[in-house]
Computed example of a mutant assay.
Amino acid sequence: MSVANPSDKAVAILNSARALMMDRGYNGFSFRDVAAEVGIKSASIHYHYATKADLAEATAKAYREAFSDAMDGLVGLDAPATLRAYGTFFVTTLRDQGGLCLGGVLAADAITLPDQVRAEVISFFDTQHDWVAAVLRKGQAEGGIRADLDVDTFAKVFVSGLEGAMMVSRGIRQPQNLETVLEHLILLARP
């Protein structure tokens, strides 16, 4: 696939990098891989992103922002339904694309990530935890979430549970396990 103008090219580069990292992780992709997918020379990527770390950071930031926008679109549902819809993002990514959440796959590579990419991973998970905690608080106020639940801790359990179940489900080639884990996590939060 060849791309017409620089902004389209930059987007195509980000999309390719995202797909490759979701499949292989940070250490499993190169400029050459991205270039082959986009239909350009690997040197052309340097015009938009000087280093692999710059490309990974931009990709992680775009992913975090898109994920946040998707979460913000989950309105008008009670807390358990909101949590289920949120979890469906993970289920769909695994079932339909065979990939992992970019935040999770980069977290697995954390020890080898450049600092700027690790900072984006931290920001991704901070955003996820804060959003899930807010949903849980709203659910407690409405009576759909256990009143005794420590929402900040459970938000971390919920996100980590989905991330871990996603990786294991992919590893054993049983994506339906992720859906089972999602339902059980929701049951743990209900009164």
Rank of each mutant, 00 (worst) to 15 (best):
M1P: 07
S2I: 14
S2N: 13
V3I: 09
A4G: 13
N5C: 01
P6Q: 07
A10V: 06
L14G: 08
L14M: 10
S16N: 04
S16I: 07
S16W: 07
M22F: 00
G25V: 02
Y26T: 03
Y26L: 02
N27W: 00
D33N: 03
V34P: 01
V34S: 03
E37L: 11
G39A: 02
I40E: 09
S44V: 00
S44I: 00
A53P: 01
D54V: 03
L55F: 07
A56N: 00
E57T: 05
T59F: 03
R64K: 09
R64Y: 04
R64P: 03
A66K: 12
A66Q: 12
S68K: 14
D69F: 00
A70M: 08
A70W: 07
A70L: 08
A70H: 08
G73Q: 01
L74N: 05
V75W: 08
V75Q: 14
L77M: 10
A79C: 04
A79H: 03
P80E: 02
L83C: 02
R84V: 08
A85F: 05
G87A: 10
F89V: 10
V91A: 14
V91E: 14
T92E: 12
T92D: 14
T93N: 08
D96M: 06
Q97G: 11
G98T: 06
G98R: 07
G98Y: 09
G99W: 15
L100T: 06
L102R: 08
L102S: 03
L106G: 05
A107R: 12
A108W: 13
D109F: 09
D109V: 09
D109E: 11
I111T: 15
I111C: 10
I111W: 12
I111K: 14
I111L: 15
T112P: 03
V117F: 05
V121R: 06
V121I: 09
I122E: 14
F124Y: 13
F125L: 10
D126L: 13
D126R: 14
T127W: 02
Q128V: 03
D130S: 15
D130I: 11
W131E: 09
A134R: 09
L136D: 02
L136N: 02
Q140M: 06
A141D: 06
A141F: 01
E142W: 03
G144V: 02
V151W: 04
D152Q: 11
T153A: 15
F154P: 09
K156T: 10
F158C: 05
V159A: 13
G161W: 11
L162Q: 08
L162E: 06
A165H: 06
M166G: 15
M167D: 12
R170Q: 15
R173W: 01
R173L: 08
R173I: 00
Q174E: 05
Q176T: 13
L178I: 10
T180H: 13
T180A: 14
V181I: 13
R190A: 10
P191N: 05
